[in-house]
Simulated assay, not measured.
Amino acid sequence: MSFETTKSTGKFVVMKDEVFISGNMNQKKKVVIVAMTGRMLIDFAGPSDVFTTTNIFLKEYGLNGEYDVQIVTPTVDKMVTSGAGMKILCDVSAMDIKSSIDTLIICNYEFQESPSDLFQPFYTWLAKRTEKNTRRIASVCAGTFALAKAGLINNRKVTTHWNLNEKLKHNYPQLNVDTNFFFTKDGYIYTSGGVSSGVDMALAMVEEDFGKELALKVARELVVYLYRPGYQSQFGSLLPSYNNSGLSQKLGNWVLEHLHETLDVRRIADHLNISPRNFTRVFHKQTGMPPAKFVEKVRVEQARKFLEDTDNSLENIAELCGLGGLSSMRRTFLRLLMTTPSDYRRTFRTSLKDAGLGKLHLLNG
């Protein structure tokens, strides 16, 4: 093993088995993970496992500067109850922490707050966390709402779970919300998307602190990607839920039955016995999008189902869904889902079938 040190920066590089690690030699990095809700344990367990696994490798190489990880609650009772009913008792609440913090991560958000403002002391504490006393402030999934409520992310670029996109934009219009990404960084603020995105974000933090090679070793140990391919947009529906009485609901099944045909405004309006101009006006008012955009998204949603559940060729799927051929379908997927049809199929096709268990599953089903 050999060491290379730089006195001016306090950084060092250790070379062992072709692993290059850089980091602060002197002190532990205090990581505080606030478990806002126990509905999904991976919200806070995922990032915690990334940092504690990093510590294993740091000790293996005889390095200092590891993470001091502490899971805390936003309430004085110090109790987290999981969605499965398991109760987790933490040593401290967030409000007990008065010292500086290296990395603060808020995991999820309590949308159903109690009338007694059970969480108000936590938000008062959180609002006082700034760059002066906290090097990094982050959120997992709906935790972005907690950061917004505390006034920490005004006018910043943030993300959250894809299904909460419109809700976050509506509640906090001053934010720059983009839920395509698994995680984002704006200054010292980090936000991540759906629950597993907290792992992506934590790995990125490890890479910032100790370099790519160590972060990659941690990712391999956890059997996850260091850089997960794709975007959140691949996971969510392109079509938001609409009122059952709306035109989109009335059109749904009919459009699906005629996807392989030309579906322009006049054709759809004739089906509904409405003038094209009136149909376009009412439809846009109800859905927030023009009819042509709606039809395109229905085509892509149906193509996704074929890619997930069938062995149909890409050419056949493009024809069945009226996407104008393979090249046209590829361009549409890249524009709306930021991935290609073939990459989408590899990622989302029926899991048991790809694992070689499809036949067994059918026999036992």
Rank of each mutant, 00 (worst) to 15 (best):
N273R: 13
D117G: 15
T81N: 11
Q234W: 05
F348K: 13
A94W: 01
V80C: 06
S82D: 02
N165L: 04
E308G: 09
M289T: 10
V31R: 09
N180K: 03
L337V: 02
Y123I: 06
V92M: 14
V80M: 10
G211D: 03
Y109T: 08
Y67Q: 03
V298G: 10
K28N: 13
G151I: 04
I21C: 01
R156V: 04
L362D: 10
G252F: 09
R345L: 03
I97E: 08
Q27I: 07
Q232M: 15
T160S: 04
S342M: 09
D102A: 07
P115W: 09
T160W: 00
T103F: 15
A292G: 12
K132H: 12
S139T: 09
T53L: 05
V32I: 15
N316C: 10
N180G: 08
V32G: 11
V31N: 01
K217P: 00
F182D: 03
I97D: 10
A94Y: 04
R267F: 08
E66V: 04
R135V: 09
L238T: 12
N108Y: 08
I106Y: 01
S313F: 11
L320I: 12
E110K: 14
K250I: 14
L175A: 00
F294A: 12
R266F: 05
H284A: 15
R136C: 08
V255E: 08
K157F: 13
W254P: 11
F182Q: 01
V206F: 01
L323W: 01
K7H: 07
K28Q: 12
E131K: 15
R345M: 07
L362F: 11
G83I: 03
R281W: 07
M40T: 13
D311P: 07
L256W: 05
K167L: 07
A45C: 14
K87A: 14
H258M: 11
G10I: 03
I88P: 02
M86Q: 08
P121T: 04
V72H: 01
L58C: 06
T103L: 15
V177Y: 00
I137F: 12
D354P: 03
A146R: 07
S245M: 14
P173D: 01
E319P: 12
L89K: 10
F119D: 05
E4A: 14
G85F: 08
R156A: 11
I71N: 02
I268A: 03
F44L: 14
V224A: 04
T130E: 05
L175K: 00
D17P: 00
M86P: 01
S116H: 10
I71L: 09
L314Q: 05
S328M: 03
F44W: 10
D209V: 06
M95Y: 02
G85Y: 06
A138I: 08
V282C: 02
A138T: 05
P341I: 09
R136T: 09
D49C: 13
K29L: 03
E4L: 14
A35G: 11
L320S: 11
V80F: 08
H161A: 00
K98M: 08
R277T: 15
T134L: 07
P276C: 07
E60Q: 13
N364A: 15
